[in-house]
Design a protein around this nucleic acid. Structure first.
Lengths: 108, 108
DNA sequence: CTTTTTGTTCTATCAATATGGAACAATAAA
DNA sequence: TTTATTGTTCCATATTGATAGAACAAAAAG
């Protein structure tokens, strides 16, 4: 699990891939959870889904510039890149995060 | 072409379908063009694409609540529902429209 | 060293969606 | 009435992307 992740630089984050990444129910759920948890690893957000699926979604979010992955031992901790996104596309994430359910249900 | 279009009420516009509709290169192009033209019919925005494809994209945008279609004779005039979207998801469309190219190229 | 935990990568399959041709419908114009 | 314009609907095809099992890799613990 060497996994030297590549996080795109702020100027390389583009709107279309960003929107495509967000416009998925599972990934929007991940985003909302990360927003409330501040930081979480992959396993924490599995909701009965296979790891390979989740790993895929995290990769999409990472490559779109939405989240950052920090390796700590065997765990990979993910956080939203809200500051970067706010600078790059002001108001976008705010308007989306406002729609996150306040109490995240168990099965989302 | 009876086409009694159904435009969703503001409260029936939901985030995920909205994002899915926007997160497509052709439709994002349509949105940007409509933003600069204020109003346009389907044929005006064909860029060598078949009508059936464009009609499909307009339908997706319409059902997502992004645009409104007004029938005038043989033409169907489309406009963005910016006021509704701003009320429903404040700041969202603004942040997206800001990314539209100022001079829309011929082939977009 | 062996086992456990975590997450990736590979691969195949399946579902959703975009594309585009053809026929059709409606209005307007000749 | 005939023709042209506009856009929809139907249909088949192609493409994209999600799902999920299996094997693998790395780190930590026993």
């Amino acid at each position: 699990m060497a996994a030297l992740y590549h996080h795109p630089a702020p100027e390389d984050i583009t709107l279309l891939p960003l929107l495509r990444a967000i416009a998925d129910p599972v990934r929007l759920g991940i985003i909302c959870h990360l927003h409330s948890l501040k930081e979480a690893n992959c396993t924490t957000l599995l909701r009965g889904r296979p790891k390979s699926s989740m790993s895929h979604h995290f990769q999409v979010l990472r490559e779109a510039g939405i989240l950052q992955t920090r390796v700590e031992g065997v765990q990979h901790r993910n956080t939203l890149r809200l500051d970067v996104l706010e600078n790059r596309f002001p108001g976008l994430m705010v308007s989306i995060l406002r729609e996150c359910p306040t109490n995240l249900p168990e099965d989302s």
